[in-house]
């Protein structure tokens, strides 16, 4: 079997598994509020926007008839500053005095309105960030804003060990991302279905490390038998993965933040992508450094550290990047 066929088969298998999991975990679609409001989103720091099924009747301007509150604080309504419509009256923007945080869910309540000839006494809509947006945020955050190497300072041993050549960097990046994503999904399941219900949280570290080690061993054995070509390319990196801090940090972070399965996978994918990016950037610089005239004591690792420091400073610029 060629490497390509193996890849294709693996991808298909993973996709099928993902679909099954999606069907299984997909939450029941929430009842859309009386059908009047079809969509809601965060417009800017102070504004929520709602999309309506029908144009709102001209008489209704929203004055005193719109309430907004955080889902967890229904007793503390926010101060509504203004309610404005788009010209076709199919979309309204509700501006509030307070700062709106896209990480929270907000309930917008409209009273005594009529749209398309239908009168509605009261309608609620919960505005929260969509699933896809959350996943994209997690991936971007894990790979750029909280890049595991340059802003969380993890996985440095492997980072300095394998960033000497671009070729090794790419190999390591790919193997790491694959192992991380697979084991994160597995760890999520074990934690939520075994450790948490049985109150065995104190075994976290032991179990997580064990799972990663088993996964690495498993991939090593399977790859050796099924695809010797791929094994020859990536096999050496597999062993190294067990001593990479990131493989343990990702499970700990996803447990701390109580991520669901998709969020966990996104975190793992993002961390892998971030690690691969860091490796590649560093390898490109180090290949050139070999030709540079560096003072004696700095040759080798010391200068690599200084370079990593410069990268880290640059990555500091990503911090606080607004993903709302």
């Amino acid at each position: 079997m060629t490497a390509r066929a193996f890849f294709r088969r693996t991808v298909l298998l993973v996709l099928a598994a993902a679909c099954c999991a999606a069907l299984w975990t997909a939450p029941a679609t929430p009842a859309v509020a009386a059908g009047l409001i079809t969509d809601g989103s965060f417009h800017d720091d102070h504004t929520l926007s709602l999309t309506l099924a029908d144009a709102m009747d001209a008489g209704w301007d929203g004055a005193g008839k719109v309430t907004v509150f955080e889902r967890t604080s229904p007793d503390i309504p926010l101060t509504v500053r203004s309610v404005t419509f788009t010209p076709d009256r199919r979309e309204l923007h509700v501006a509030v005095e307070e700062l709106v945080n896209p990480g929270e869910a907000y309930v917008v309540r409209l009273r005594d309105c009529s749209a398309g000839g239908r009168a509605v006494a009261e309608v609620d809509y919960t505005v929260r960030r969509g699933m896809l947006a959350i996943l994209v945020t997690i991936i971007l955050s894990a790979s750029l804003i909280h890049n595991f190497v340059f802003t969380r300072y993890l996985g440095l041993c492997i980072f300095f060990g394998t960033s000497g050549r671009k070729e090794t960097a790419v190999g390591m990046g790919i193997s790491f991302t694959v192992v991380m994503t697979l084991s994160a999904g597995f760890i999520w399941a074990v934690y939520n279905f075994v450790l948490k219900p049985l109150h065995l949280d104190f075994l976290q570290v032991l179990v997580f490390v064990g799972i990663v080690a088993i996964f690495v061993q498993f991939l090593d054995t399977v790859l050796r038998k099924v695809n010797p070509f791929l094994f020859k390319k990536l096999g050496v990196y597999l062993v190294l993965i067990t001593t990479n801090c990131i493989v343990l940090a990702v499970p700990l972070i996803l447990v701390n933040n109580a991520y669901d399965m998709w969020e966990s996978l996104a975190l793992a994918l993002g961390s892998g992508a971030g690690f691969a990016l860091a490796l590649f950037l560093m390898a490109s610089v180090r290949e050139r450094l070999e030709l540079a005239d560096i003072p004696g004591p700095f040759r080798g690792l010391p200068i690599a550290f200084v370079v990593a420091g410069l990268f880290a400073l640059a990555f500091l610029g990503f911090s606080g990047l607004n993903l709302g």
Binding site: P295, F298, A304, A308, G309, A312, L316
Partner: peptide, 22 residues
């Protein structure tokens, strides 16, 4: 005190260590 300075500090100290040893 900024986190990235950790890299610089280690790089410089490492070089110092090597220099002293030599």
């Amino acid at each position: 005190s900024l986190p990235p300075a950790g890299f610089f500090a280690i790089g410089l100290l490492m070089a110092l260590f090597i220099w002293v040893e030599k």
